[in-house]
Simulated scan of single mutants.
Amino acid sequence: MAPQSTKTTRRESPSDEPAPERPSTEPRDPSPAVTRSLRILGALERARGPLTLSEISREVGMAKSSASNICQALENEGMIDRVESGYRLGIRTAELGGAFASQFNQVREFFAAVEGDPVLRGHVVQIAMLDAPDALYLARHEGRRQRLGTPLGSRLPLIHCAVGNAMLLAMDDAEVGAVLGAADFTPTTEESVTSPEAVREKIGAGRGRGYAIDRGESFPGIHGVAVPLEPWQPGDPRMAVGVALAASEAGDAVVDELGAALLTLADALTNPLSRRP
């Protein structure tokens, strides 16, 4: 008779079993390298000046070696430049920004239309588009040597700047409510509105006169007058066109004259095929 085996089989306890994988709550990044590249470009945009490789890696939260590889690729494509003090945005980004703006008919027609207007040609005139809760500046006519207006690519809160207010004039109550719900009412200047009620009051006054006014709400001593632009074709973003001028020049008669000229300009920048007889 064969002796019975004393060997026992060890049974795994629940703690020994591999834990089931938990589904990730984060969406899968289809292209991590592209995402990291965009984060680096965003960091340089916010910095508005050169950043060292160490500063970039800290800003975007990646290893310095990874940041170095991506910066090299971006530099090769002209998206960033290497300078003595680090990296800065390259000329290719300016080309892309210009291409983005010029795809809209109103921007392409803007410069000739302003030059042809005897009132507006001497002023700083700008086009901005809606990127709620901000206005994003796309095009600029330099009418004077005075350093007025907002640099291209800049953003200002819709609730404060004239072009932003002008876009609000063209919105229905639901759209206005959505903008006000997302707005930051931290004042930019002593003149800035600080409540939804104040914005709605400005909208009512602007609709009554046909154009929006910014009396130093975005920059001290700088006033703005603006009107909304009707989208050229379906799918185009909301836009507005406005004038920036020194507060010392912004008397009621001048503002009224600029408002009337801007309304004429907006009519010239409307798609002729969309005009009703």
Rank of each mutant, 00 (worst) to 15 (best):
A182Q: 14
D131Q: 05
D256Y: 01
R28P: 03
A101R: 02
S5H: 09
T264I: 07
P50G: 13
T25D: 15
M167Q: 00
E77M: 14
E249I: 04
A99Y: 11
A113E: 00
P151K: 09
D172R: 05
Q106I: 02
V176I: 14
R46A: 14
G210D: 07
G242K: 04
V114Y: 00
T8V: 15
G208T: 05
V60T: 04
A266Q: 05
A94Y: 08
G116D: 12
G235R: 04
S154G: 09
L136R: 06
V125D: 00
W232Q: 02
R22L: 11
L265D: 02
E257Q: 10
P30I: 06
R39I: 05
A266G: 01
Y211P: 00
R147I: 15
D134H: 03
E142I: 15
V34P: 05
S102V: 12
Y137C: 02
T194C: 11
R140C: 13
M129G: 04
R209Q: 14
A113V: 04
E197G: 13
P32Y: 13
A43G: 07
I40D: 03
S102P: 06
P231W: 04
R46M: 12
T35K: 07
D214H: 04
E115W: 14
R108V: 11
S66M: 10
R145V: 15
S54N: 10
L258P: 01
A63I: 07
A43W: 03
A198C: 09
P277E: 15
F110H: 00
V107C: 04
S274W: 11
R36P: 02
G122I: 11
A174W: 04
S15R: 14
A198N: 11
S37L: 14
L96E: 07
R108Q: 11
V241E: 00
L263A: 09
A178L: 13
S37G: 11
V227Y: 00
L269D: 01
L74Q: 11
G122V: 06
I70R: 07
R11K: 13
H223C: 07
E26W: 12
E175Y: 07
A132T: 06
L269I: 09
R28G: 11
A67T: 05
S5L: 15
V60S: 00
L96A: 13
L96W: 06
L74G: 03
G259M: 00
R238L: 14
V179N: 01
L265W: 00
R36G: 09
S24V: 10
E84W: 14
M239L: 08
I40T: 09
A246T: 08
E17Y: 07
S13T: 12
V60A: 01
G116W: 10
D256Q: 09
G204M: 12
G216K: 03
G153I: 08
A260L: 08
L148A: 07
A128T: 04
G42T: 12
G204F: 10
L156E: 06
A73R: 12
Q233R: 13
P14I: 10
K7R: 15
E12F: 12
G149M: 04
M129Y: 04
L51N: 07
R88M: 13
E197Y: 08
E45A: 12
F110W: 01
R28I: 15
A47I: 06
S15K: 14
G251C: 05
D134A: 06
G206V: 02
I40E: 08
S13H: 15
V193I: 10
A261V: 04
F104I: 06
G181S: 13
K202D: 07
I127R: 03
P231G: 03
